[in-house]
C-alpha cells in the first residue's frame, strides 16, 4: 500500500508539524497582559486583560462582541457566517489568537513591559 517515498513524506510532515509546534511552545506562551484587537491589519484598540470589560465592534465588515473576563478573553457574539471565532475557546496566552476571518478581525495578547523596556532604553 505504501511505497518508500510515501513513508518518507509522512515522516517529513510529522517532523515539520512537531518542529513548528515545539517552536511555538518555546517561542511564546506566557500569560498575556494586554488584549490587542487588529482589524484588516491595523490596530483597533488595546485593553488590559486584568480588567473585565466588553468590547463591541460594529463596522463595514460586521458586528463582534469581545468579552474580557477573569483574565481570559473570548468572542461572545459575531454576525459572521461561519461562527468559528465564537466557538473558539477563551484565550489568555501570548501565542494564542482568536481570528474572525470574514470580518478580518484578530484578537491577540501581548506583554506590556517588553515595550516599556524599549522606551526606557530609548530615553
Amino acid at each position: 500500500m505504501f511505497k518508500k517515498k510515501d513513508v518518507t513524506l509522512i515522516i517529513a510532515v510529522l517532523i515539520l508539524a512537531g518542529l513548528i509546534a515545539a517552536f511555538l511552545r518555546i517561542y511564546s506562551g506566557e500569560t498575556g497582559e494586554t488584549v490587542r484587537i487588529m482589524i484588516d491589519g491595523n490596530e483597533y484598540g488595546s485593553y488590559p486583560l486584568g480588567e473585565d470589560s466588553v468590547i463591541e465592534i460594529g463596522n463595514a465588515f460586521g458586528y463582534n462582541r469581545i468579552v474580557i473576563e477573569n483574565g481570559e478573553v473570548f468572542m461572545q457574539e459575531a454576525d459572521c457566517p461561519d461562527q468559528y471565532c465564537v466557538e473558539h475557546k477563551a484565550i489568555s496566552k501570548t501565542n494564542e489568537t482568536i481570528v474572525c476571518l470574514p470580518h478580518k478581525l484578530v484578537v491577540e495578547l501581548h506583554v506590556q513591559n517588553r515595550e516599556d523596556d524599549f522606551d526606557s532604553i530609548a530615553q
Binding site: 508539524a17 509546534a21 487588529m38 484588516d40 489568537t97 476571518l101 478581525l105 491577540e108
Partner: peptide, 17 residues
C-alpha cells in the same frame, strides 16, 4: 494574507497533521 497577521500560523501543526 487576508488578516495581515502571522499569528494564524499557530494552526499550522494541527493543519499539517
Amino acid at each position: 494574507i487576508v488578516v495581515e497577521n502571522m499569528s494564524v500560523f499557530y494552526y499550522m501543526p494541527v493543519l499539517l497533521v
